[in-house]
Amino acid sequence: MREDFGPPAHDSLSRYFPYTLQERTEKMIIVNGFAGLTQGAFFAIIGILLTLMSQLTRVVNFSQLAVGMFGGFVGMTLMMNPDIQLNIWLALVVSIVISAALSGIIGWIIATWLPSAPISNRSAVTVAALLLIVSTASVLFGANHSNFTPIVSGNVTQFTIPGGQIVFVSQSLVALLALAFVILIASSILLKRTMFGVRLRAISDRQSAAELIGVNVKVLNVGVWVISGALISLAIGFVPATISNDYISFSLLIIGGSAAALVGAFKNPWLALVGGLLIGALQGVCSAIPQIAPYRDWVVFILILVFLLWNQRKEVWDVAR
C-alpha cells in the first residue's frame, strides 16, 4: 500500500519547503518590498533636497549626489589610509565639510554668473558639475575603491510576517527615515518661523524684487547650497554597503531621487518623501519576481513617464476648458 512507502514525494518535499512557489513569491515580495525601503528612504532624501533647492534657488541640482559622493570618498580615503586611519566620525565630519564646500562653490558660480538665467540653464551647469566631479573622483581615487563604510549597520529590530518569514528593520532605514523627517520638519520651521526663512521664500517668489529691497540674495543662495551639500553627505553616511557605490552608478541614483521629487512636482517635499519610499519599495518588489527582476530599474522610468502623462492630461483638460 502506498502508506507503507511513506508520504508521497511532494509531501516529503513540503516538509523542507512548506510553501508553494506562489506563496513563497508572495512572501518574498513583502520581504523585498520592505528591504527596498532603505534605498527608497535615500531616494526620498535626495528628492526632498532637490525639491527644496528647486524652490529656493531655482535649480534642479543634478550634481547633488556627486558632491556628497566626493566628500564621502575623501573621508573614506582618510579612514583607510594606514598613516592617517581617521576615526569614522571624524571622517564623516570631513566628508560633510568637503561636500558642503564643493556644493557652495557650485552655488556661488551659479549665483555669480547666472543669477537671472532660466532654470534650465542653471540646471545645465549642475550636469556639467556632475561630470566634472565624477571624472575628478575617478582620477583621485582610482578605479578600485572600497565601498563606503556606513556609520550605522545591523538591524534595529525584526518581525515575523504571517507564514514565518522574517522581516528585518535595518539601522540604515531608521537613520535615513529619521534624517528625512528631520530635514522636512527643520526646513518647515526654518522657512516659516525665522527671518532667514522669510528671506529665502522672498527670493523664491521674486529674486530681483528681493534684491531691490536689500536682501542679500547671493549669500542666502550659496547658504542653501552649502546646507544641501552637508545634508546629502550626512545621508550618504547612513547608506548601507549593499547599495552600489562606484562613482557613476552612485551618482546616477540622482535619477531615482529626481523621480521622487517629481512625485511632489518639485514643490511638495512631503510628497517627495512618499515618492522615494514608493520607488524603493516597488524596486524591491520587482526584485522578488524573477520574471521582472532584471527590469527593476525601469520602475523609475515608468514612474516619471506616468507622472508626466498625468500632468499633460491636466494641461489638455485646462486647454479644453
Binding site: R201, A202, S204, D205
Partner: peptide
C-alpha cells in the same frame, strides 16, 4: 511686486 507666498506681516518684516 508683493512676495505672494509671504503674509502681509512677513512682507513688511523684510
Amino acid at each position: 511686486m508683493i512676495f505672494p507666498s509671504l503674509t502681509v506681516k512677513e512682507n513688511l518684516q523684510l
